[in-house]
Lab assay of single mutants.
Amino acid sequence: MDEEYDVIVLGTGLTECILSGIMSVNGKKVLHMDRNPYYGGESSSITPLEELYKRFQLLEGPPESMGRGRDWNVDLIPKFLMANGQLVKMLLYTEVTRYLDFKVVEGSFVYKGGKIYKVPSTETEALASNLMGMFEKRRFRKFLVFVANFDENDPKTFEGVDPQTTSMRDVYRKFDLGQDVIDFTGHALALYRTDDYLDQPCLETVNRIKLYSESLARYGKSPYLYPLYGLGELPQGFARLSAIYGGTYMLNKPVDDIIMENGKVVGVKSEGEVARCKQLICDPSYIPDRVRKAGQVIRIICILSHPIKNTNDANSCQIIIPQNQVNRKSDIYVCMISYAHNVAAQGKYIAIASTTVETTDPEKEVEPALELLEPIDQKFVAISDLYEPIDDGCESQVFCSCSYDATTHFETTCNDIKDIYKRMAGTAFDFENMKRKQNDVFGEAEQ
């Protein structure tokens, strides 16, 4: 370990593993360490099931009705991949897709007046949907046509809207959309967690709705994908990429100290040895004095023996409960997957309800979601602090990732990755940087 590296990475969460992969592909010498004996950090999948019970201090362990412990891979952080989103792009560019198998999530649902409705995925579904009345549908269709044709580089498509100054509230007004449709559009399509976006320039919202539609167009059922064997497969896929390009991995490796000289990182000390480096990437748990708390998320993992009611017996789905429907500031989400994804025993389902904490009784906040899941065989409640770095790391060369937020997709995580890359490399992130180099010394032969 007593060696000189360009970059040392602490923690094998998804953000850290993707950055480690990119740095290795770009010719950097990388050492990647984790104090845990497993990959994934906060974003790991726990197996066998006995391990999950232990982690949540349920000492009696799983009953026999849960089947074989080894058949379970339970995500600690519930997220899906947008089919046309940035993480899929990263997987394709790096060819990490060859280590993973994905399934399309069967449906996306939205909560309205105590019931759940399928988010329409085709024009026919939209016309048949009970989510809105006849005239509302016509106006909504006009709005969707506007979004589909919108091109930020072609003012002819703006229809009198200025993407940089017109607020989204004004765009909704222009198409005369009612409150329910606005809730549905902002939260189930643009996937905002709160209503803060309404008074911001509309460009980002329009682009988010386009991303949803384009992702949906790829597979038809929903815009989301999920990897077989759980999300823990993602960091491992990128760790393989890093290793192929010469990255060194050490799990179960305690970090005793991060060594600084004149305010700059110069190395990491572990078990009496020092590895030197020019730059350091880590998750917040490794540098508690360089991060601040930015809120909390509650996630309740529920094991069920039945599909969720009114989802047409889907073996995977997402449910969004827009905040307006339950008098909150932030949406509540449910991600459900099952034995069909090799993450649970035969006939079992895993539904994870999550939201940003707003009160001193977080469990009560998630109740509307839990009511949709009854009866629940077993619950595991996790309340996590969200951390963000206190500075950009440019001076110390210590670059810290943000905690995983309450969103049900990876777009915010990818933004964090691109942002850290830019601060480390001094140049904007470009997907081309992730391409495997042809015929290089570490390149794998085609399968």
Rank of each mutant, 00 (worst) to 15 (best):
S338D: 14
R276C: 08
E395D: 05
V266I: 15
D180N: 11
P227M: 15
K293S: 14
V291G: 07
I116T: 09
E214V: 08
T94L: 12
M250T: 04
R299L: 02
V297F: 05
W72M: 00
S330V: 04
Y172V: 04
G426V: 08
D71G: 10
D430H: 00
S285G: 11
V297T: 12
Y99T: 13
V119Q: 03
H409Q: 00
G85V: 02
A351V: 09
V145L: 12
N26D: 07
Y421R: 12
K379G: 07
R173M: 14
C202V: 15
L59R: 06
P362S: 06
N26W: 08
D196R: 15
E374Y: 11
I350K: 07
V326Y: 03
L100Q: 11
S316V: 04
K112L: 09
S167A: 01
L304R: 02
Q236P: 05
L91W: 05
N310R: 00
R98L: 07
D283F: 08
D2C: 01
P201F: 15
E123R: 02
K115N: 07
D154N: 09
Q325K: 00
R193P: 10
D405Y: 02
R35M: 08
S43D: 02
T311N: 00
K89T: 11
F109L: 04
S129L: 11
I8S: 02
T311K: 10
E374G: 11
V9D: 03
E123G: 10
I258S: 04
I298V: 07
I352R: 06
V326I: 11
K221N: 11
A188N: 15
W72R: 03
R436A: 03
Q438R: 09
D440P: 08
Y111T: 01
L76R: 12
V74G: 03
K348Q: 06
S401F: 03
L91I: 01
R35C: 08
A190S: 08
G347K: 15
S222G: 08
T359F: 00
C302F: 05
A445H: 12
F410G: 00
I301R: 07
D75E: 03
N324H: 04
K89P: 01
G61E: 11
L373V: 12
D257N: 05
T311P: 03
R173A: 03
R173V: 02
N153H: 14
M132K: 03
L203Q: 02
Q236N: 14
T413V: 13
R169L: 10
V9A: 05
F158V: 06
Y172H: 05
R208P: 03
Q378L: 04
T15V: 04
V110F: 03
V206Y: 06
R276N: 14
R98N: 15
K103D: 13
G67A: 15
G267A: 10
E233Y: 15
K264Q: 13
